[in-house]
Each structure stands twice: as C-alpha cells, then as structure tokens.
Design a protein around this nucleic acid. Structure first.
Lengths: 337, 337
DNA sequence: TTGAAAGCGCTAACAC
DNA sequence: GTGTTAGCGCTTTCAA
C-alpha cells in the first residue's frame, strides 16, 4: 500500500540505489537525475521508512532516555535540555518513566536496547551492580545525567552535590547562624539524601559548630515534608534560626510552615533551598537557593552522548558543572561585602 | 557481532521459526522444545532486534507524542498520563518538543510517521489546515489531547474550556462581585486565549454585568504576566474586586502582585486560577482554581489511541472530561450554602 | 554517475 | 509441533 523506494525508482526510471542516494543527500548524483527523482518523490508522496533504514544501516537516530518522573519540575527541565540538543543533532528520543523502580529501570534499558537506540541517557537515583551488568551488555554508549555512580566508569554529568551542600550551609553560617537545621532526602538517596547532607555536616564541622541530630530531618523532599519539618523544628526547645532544605519545593514548604506559625522569613528564620526550579521565584519571600544548572546537565549529557555515538574524542567522561547560590529574599543580605 | 535469532536456532538445534515462536509466546511449541530454546537464549544472551521485528511485522509498539513544552507543569502532567497508559499497554513513546512552532510540528509529525510509529498523540495550540493535511497522509491513528480542532473530525480529549471559563466567572459573581477582571491567554490561542475568555464574557452577560475592556489583559500566561496584570488592574481608577486568571501560574503572579502592593487576598481581592497544577497549593493563600484533569486527559487520550491501534470499537471519538472548581483560600467561602 | 544484488534480523504463511 | 522460505524496505558494496 504505502509508497516504497522501489516505486519511486520505477517512477523516475532509475535504480533504487539512486533514489537512496538522493534521499540521503549523497553528492554522487547528476543534478538532472536528482531533479527527476525528487519530482517522482513529490508526485508519489514518498516517505522513507526509517525502520527499514535502521535495519539496513544499523542506526536508528533515536536515543533512549530513562527518567524517574517527567512530571517533576527538576527532571522535566533536564529532559528539556536533552530534547533540545537531541533535536539539534537530528535524534529522536524515546522517553521512559522509571518511577525510580529498579526492576522497571532494568526492563526499560533492555527494551531500549532491543529497539536498537543509538545511545542512552540515564537519570536516576543510583547505579547499582545490576544496572552496571545490563549496561555492560549494551553495545551503544550510555551517559548518566544527575545520577550518582561510585566507580566513575560510566560517563556522567552532574554538579558537586557535596560541595553544594557545603556551600549552602556555609552561606548560612556566614549570615551569623549557629543553629542551622537541614531537611534532606531519604538516606537511600545518594545525591539529595547523602551527599548534600554530608556537605552540610562538613560545613558545620569546619566552622566549629556541633552537629545536632534533632536539627536533621530526612525523607521525601516534597512540599508537605517542608511544611511538616518547619513544624517540628519550631516546636523544638531551641529552634533553629536557619534551615537548609535539599529541594526548592521543600524549602517553600518550610517557608510557608514558618509563616503559618506567625514567624517571618528571613527576619526570624532564614531559608535556603536547592535546585532553583521556577517555583523559587514564585514564593514570597523569593527563595535563596543553590542553583543547579538543570537544563545544562541534560544538554551537556546529550551532547556528550552524541560525541560517543559519532566516535569523537572525549576528553573528560565525568563532567562536573558549576553550581552557585542565587541570593534572594529568604536570607538577609550578607553585610561584610 | 550481536547474537541473532539464527544463532539461537543453531544453538538450540531448531529452526528460526521455532525460536520466533518461543520469543513471541506462541503456544504451539512443545514444552521441552521451549525449554531448550530458552536455555539457548539465556546462554547466548540473545536480545531480539525490535527494528527487524518492526520491519517484518509492520508494528513498532511505539507511539509518537508531540508536546509544546515538556518543562511546563501542565504538559508534563499530561505526558505523565500518556506515558503511564502507554507503558501499561507495552508501548514506548517518542517524545517531541514542538515549541508550538508550526513548521517544527509538521516536521515532527513527518519524522514520526517515517519512524513508523503505531499512532500519535498530539498536543498543541490549534489544528490548522496544514496539520490536517499531514495527518491525512498518515495511515496510523492520531488522537488530540488538550487541543482545539474545529471540524471535530479527529478524535480528541479535552475539557469544555468555554464552560470552565464560564464557571470560574460565575463563581466570582456568586461571591458578590461585579468588578471582575480577567487575565487571558493570547487571542491566537483558541483554548486558553479565546474559549476561556468567551466563557468569562458569557457569564458576565448572563448576569447582567457590563463587559469592560480595561478589565481584560491578554498575553502569555506566565507568572510575570500575572504580576504585571495585578499592577495594571490596581492602578485603574476603579480597580476590580476579583480576578480570574487563565492559568495557575499567572494567578499566583496576580496574588503576589496584589500582596506586594499591600492589599490582601481574598479580603481585598479574590483570585481564581486555572489548571490546578501543584503550584496552586504552594502559595499563600492557596489558590482556588478550575481543576483540569491533566493526567486523565493524557491517560484517556492514550487509552483511546490504543483502541484505534487495535481496531477496537470506539463509541465517542470526542471525549470531554469533567472539570470542577477546587475551593481554596484565594476566594472567600460562599455564604449561601 | 549509475545499477545489480546481497543482505540487515525478523515474521508469517505454508508445508510437512 | 516444527521447518522452509519468501519477503519487510532500505543501505551498501562492487562493478560497470
């Protein structure tokens, strides 16, 4: 039923090979022939079959993307960066939500590999041995974006989470605070759960501030968790005067929790968030936060993948992008500068 | 290099056809044979090539999804619904950001068709004749999600945008307001720009309230636009006492704009938003808004598409999902009930 | 500059 | 139950 390359060949009175050359922009075609073929394509409404092409050429110009949750502001922004660069390099993306479930992740990787994607961008919590095992069966490159991998064998793009946690905490210490609490991710989460938390603890230690267990709450980094954390902290005998939340959504929850109790941010309590999703500007006071270049993490990861797919030289397979702190109104301005 | 079905056949001492049967769960295989084949597959680490299968079977178990912007909370939620149902039916998704650009949309549709997707879910502003033309060249089903199409020929899933705008406005009128302003989308946008606005105007008319041009601002529905709109409205000689914003993000901007001027929501001015993205609960006061079942729109669209792909009977190709108003604190409670 | 022909890895009759 | 075989629509040598 549909028009094939053979139909075009017949219509243009040339061979399939010539049609193929024209379609693929091969310069070794006489202009008149090219014109003839193009006309036939137009006349017949020919649309090349990419599946057949993929089988013959062993390239699909499609990459797989595994993402924990596309409806999260953070990952959606990463995805946007990935997609933009992919589109720039003429790749399409097979997007797979993994829900952070290990078995679903493994299944998805296998499915993507079966579909003969030319490469994979993986986003997730952590790379386990099981992941590594499946990745090893792949003959195509894989790049991690915003994902922890201890062995540092796989190419990856990230920020220095530990340092970022350290910096956020230090910022609060510079503001004169000694009673600094933190809302961190689940301790199973190597990035938002552990690394940022360790940065926090190191900053306290380096500034001679005792670590207090009751100043730390670990759990899902939701808005509700921030609300609740604020309540808990404020009901302490000696409530903190500053709170560092490991996600913006949680930080906004913290701010609202504080405000709901009649306290003020930053006058009574200062708050610092993490990520710099757009929400950070949609709260009063606007949120001071650690800027993670989300779009860039995605974009750079995809760019890196294109290099691998084209067998280009790659200098550093581990890319650490810079982070910084965006000063807004949930902290008071530092006086000394 | 990679293991093919032929290698497995040889290893298991059966024919390719038998291997194919085992892989595809065809029951016409003796259990002992099946075991033998499975063992060979395991031993060789065979992974079926979905591209070859697609070429032979003319099915790719992949659907294309065109989306204006995956980093928008609204569309990300739709995408999530689409992906969940797709995954449930064992389909993968090729996700394409269109940026609402007509030529990119057309290009993407063609690319998806070349890649032999089994169907397409399209999200966008409006279906033009040019869209229709390309869609007509497709031999696979296409379903629109949250997208306006006048002819009502194409299957689609949406809410009644006009009625929703009407309801939101009516809610404000019931609150005793006569001076009701609206921030609406660009007038080129048939959904957020025109339909909701017409609902607003009809509600005013039906309640004997004169329409005032200076109570309407049309433009991009961003947070900043809301901020700005609030400023404009408040600087009017006779400022409105209620504002209906055609998106939650804009509504939150309106709220903050009002608060920044020292006025209070809802005491001085009431605000109603649209969509019910998660942001609506992350603002003080929490936002009263028109609930669009975003996830469901995506999920139902995908479900509908599976029916078409399986040649199942479809009763209504135009699905209109219910909307409702979620009462929160940016409006005062209605007294009469 | 062009054409012929051999696959790419699999499915789906059809025959046994 | 199982095997044989002819494609699916294209790319890619290799010759001409």
């Amino acid at each position: 039923m549909p028009v094939t390359i053979y139909d075009v060949a017949r219509e243009a009175a040339v061979s399939m090979a010539t049609v193929s050359r024209v379609v693929n922009g091969n310069p070794n075609v006489k202009p008149t022939t090219r014109k003839k073929v193009l006309a036939a394509i137009e006349r017949l409404g020919y649309r090349p079959n990419a599946v057949a092409r993929g089988l013959a050429s062993k390239k699909t110009t499609t990459v797989g993307v595994i993402i924990p949750d596309i409806s999260s502001a953070f990952f959606a922004e990463l995805a946007r960066g990935i997609d933009d660069i992919a589109s720039m390099y003429k790749y399409n993306i097979i997007l797979c939500d993994s829900d952070q479930k290990l078995d679903k992740e493994i299944l998805l990787i296998n499915t993507l590999l079966e579909k003969q994607v030319d490469g994979i961008v993986y986003m997730g919590r952590e790379i386990t041995d099981e992941h590594l095992q499946v990745f090893n069966t792949a003959t195509v490159p894989i790049v991690l974006a915003g994902t922890k991998e201890r062995s540092e064998e796989l190419p990856s793009v990230n920020i220095d989470q530990n340092q970022a946690g350290y910096d956020a905490t230090t910022r609060l210490i510079q503001g004169g605070h000694k009673k600094i609490a933190m809302v961190t991710g689940p301790f199973q989460d190597p990035l938002a759960g552990i690394e940022r938390f360790e940065g926090y603890r190191n900053a306290l230690r380096d500034n001679g501030i005792d670590f207090r267990q009751d100043y730390v709450i670990s759990g899902k980094l939701t808005y509700a968790a921030g609300l609740e954390a604020a309540n808990l902290f404020m009901s302490l005998e000696e409530p903190p005067t500053a709170i560092f939340a490991a996600s913006d959504e949680t930080a906004v929850g913290v701010i609202h929790g504080i405000q709901d109790m009649g306290k003020r941010v930053p006058e009574d309590i200062e708050v610092v968030g993490f990520d710099n999703i757009r929400l950070a500007e949609m709260v009063r006071p606007r949120l001071t936060t650690v800027v993670q270049p989300m779009y860039d993490i995605g974009a750079v990861a995809m760019r890196l993948l294109t290099k691998y797919m084209n067998n280009e030289q790659v200098d550093h397979h581990i890319v650490v992008l810079p982070h910084r702190i965006e000063e807004r109104q949930s902290t008071t301005q530092l006086s000394e500068e």
